[in-house]
Computed example of a mutant assay.
Amino acid sequence: MVTVVGNLGMITLIVLSSHLHNPMYYFLSSLSFIDFCQSTIVTPKILVSFLAEKNLISYPGCMTQLYFFIIFGIAECHTLGVMAYDRYVAIFNPLLYNVTMSYKICSVLISGVYVFGVFSASVLTGFVTKIRFHESGVINHYFCDLPPLLKLACSNTYISELLILVFGTVNIFVPILTIITSYISIFTSIMRIQSTEGRSKAFSTCSSHISAVAVFYGSAAFMYLQPSSVSSMEQGKVSSVFYTTVVPMLNPLIYSLRKKDVSVALKKILQRKKFMFQK
């Protein structure tokens, strides 16, 4: 409930508040949409399993869950990278910000994130469907994910494991390198600001994004960037809880608590609604 209300509330607030119609909040609304979808893919099935006391899923249902989970997981990776680049442009070259991050460029970046997510999911899921699995079909996990599925394979999984490592490396390290490069430039620019107030304001625009990045990438890297011989499914289940349930729940809270613009916009909308009711 917190995840659904938080993310849909964030999207609604950005749509209704005209002064939030800028690139940073366009990307934030996209992130909220991804988090909403990501949690919707996993959490409802878990809740049904708790109520029914049977954790069953059909093979088509498992492949469908896996496909959409990969799409939105990869989309979140690259969205966080794009948001870091947006903060770099805003702080490093504020006078050209509206030109560099125009509506057209923002649309291309957001579309590219989803297109690459669909491409990656199609390749990875396509190879998984060609694998033969043991008849027992008991997945040591709470949803259909790549590493636990490969543990059930009774055919050669070398290509699939190689693809997971390649796509995992690309989808984690490319955004991380973008984030690191952007923040090195950002901190260099902030250090040149003379006033303490100016530095504090610049840091505040980045703090919420850094918090979201640390939780998401830390848990994702722990799950996907270990060889199958080293990784533990029990540890993997714990880390995957963070990026499938905890991160989607925390992101709206992190951004709403640390962004003054969001709290101001919420107060204005509530005051507007209160005025309408009184009238």
Results as ranks from 00 to 15, higher is better:
Ser122Glu: 11
Lys54Glu: 12
Ser185Met: 14
Tyr114Ala: 07
Ser189Lys: 15
Ser231Phe: 10
Gly73Tyr: 03
His209Ser: 06
Met233Cys: 05
Lys279Asn: 09
Pro60Arg: 03
Ile193Lys: 11
Val166Phe: 15
Phe72Val: 09
Leu8Val: 10
Tyr255Asn: 06
Phe127Pro: 00
Ile176Phe: 12
Ala221Phe: 12
Thr188Asp: 15
Phe167Ala: 08
Ile131Leu: 09
Lys151Ile: 06
Phe116Trp: 12
Leu31His: 00
Gly117Gln: 04
Val215Tyr: 07
Gly117Pro: 04
Leu163Cys: 06
Cys106Ser: 14
Pro147Leu: 01
Ile41Phe: 08
Thr205Asn: 06
Ile186His: 01
Ile269Arg: 14
Tyr114Gly: 01
Ser185Thr: 07
Leu163Arg: 06
Glu135Val: 01
Gln235Glu: 09
Val262Glu: 00
Ser208Ile: 02
Tyr217Asp: 04
Ala121Ser: 15
Asn171Trp: 10
Gly61Leu: 07
Arg132Lys: 14
Tyr67Ala: 03
Val230Trp: 09
Asp145Lys: 06
Ile14Val: 12
Leu162Asn: 12
Cys154Glu: 14
Tyr224Ala: 02
Val264His: 08
Leu95Gly: 13
Val113Lys: 02
Asn156Val: 03
Val262Thr: 08
Pro227His: 01
Ser49Thr: 06
Val123His: 04
Thr196Phe: 13
Pro248Val: 10
Val82Pro: 01
Ser160Met: 11
Tyr158Ile: 14
Ser122Asp: 10
Ile186Leu: 01
Ser107Met: 09
Tyr85Ile: 15
Gly126Ala: 11
Val174Phe: 14
Ser136His: 07
Asn22Met: 10
Phe127Asn: 13
Phe92Pro: 01
Val166Thr: 12
Ile110Pro: 02
Phe72Arg: 04
Arg258Tyr: 10
His134Gly: 15
Phe92Arg: 13
Phe36Trp: 10
Tyr183Lys: 06
Val108Ala: 09
Ile46Arg: 11
Leu124Pro: 02
Asn251Pro: 03
Leu95Thr: 11
Ser182Asp: 01
Leu13Asn: 04
Gln65Arg: 00
Met276Gly: 04
Pro44Leu: 09
Leu16Thr: 08
Asp261Ala: 14
Asp35Ala: 15
Thr100Glu: 08
Glu135Pro: 00
Phe68Leu: 04
Lys104Ala: 08
Phe143Asn: 00
Pro252Cys: 07
Leu47Val: 14
Ala75Gly: 10
Ser29Lys: 03
Ile139His: 00
Ile11Tyr: 03
His141Trp: 12
Phe36Ile: 03
Val15Lys: 14
His21Cys: 08
Met191Trp: 11
Ser208Asn: 05
Val138Leu: 02
Val123Pro: 00
Met24Arg: 14
Ser207His: 09
Lys267Phe: 13
Val247Asp: 05
Ile11Met: 12
Ser39Gln: 11
Pro60Trp: 02
Gly81Phe: 06
Ala75Ile: 05
